[in-house]
Design a protein around this nucleic acid. Structure first.
Length: 154
DNA sequence: GCCAACGTTGGC
DNA sequence: GCCAACGTTGGC
């Protein structure tokens, strides 16, 4: 059963344009250091799942593209890299803590701003929009996905 | 296991 | 830069 997700990225780190410019429009999604978000990747994500690509911590936060999950979870290489911002001294090759998945960009869309998402009745219960929600990866229901796709197609 | 202190996220 | 909300850490 195909599932849907929303994945946040700061455009100064990885933007939708960066993703679309990558070889095969595919990039490893690394640097997630939150257990709940990790568990979504590890336990929930399967190849072919739908992804809303979201720009956060920027002037105009919102959905900027559609992507898909292109691999199941595997150990996030950056946790072992001493020079990485994402290095985790408690992670070992034998017992990795953090995972990555590959994400393949499908299309860039016109910005669907957070302010408009908040006004869509179909998204009332969306995890992203809950007060205080900071998860960088959140599940999206089929109904929410449908509503957003319809709006993106406008 | 509790909880205060601290760090991070992310919209504004 | 501010600040609310949440997660993590570590002393006890």
């Amino acid at each position: 059963m195909k599932q849907y997700w929303l994945m946040k990225s700061e455009p100064t780190e990885v933007s939708i344009d960066d993703l679309m410019a990558a070889p095969g429009q595919t990039m490893p999604w690394f640097g997630v250091r939150n257990y709940q978000a990790r568990n979504f990747m590890r336990d929930g994500m399967r190849e072919g799942d739908g992804v809303l690509f979201y720009h956060s911590s920027c002037a105009q936060p919102g959905v900027v593209g559609v992507a898909e999950v292109a691999s199941t979870a595997y150990p996030d290489h950056s946790q072992f890299d001493k020079n990485s911002h994402y290095f985790d001294p408690k992670a070992t090759q034998e017992q990795p803590r953090w995972v990555s998945v590959d994400v393949r960009g499908l299309k860039r869309t016109a910005l669907l701003p957070l302010s408009e998402l908040r006004q869509m009745p179909a998204l009332e219960d969306m995890l992203l929009l809950k007060k205080g929600s900071r998860l960088s990866i959140a599940p999206v229901t089929p109904a929410q996905w449908k509503a957003i796709q319809a709006r993106l197609a406008d």
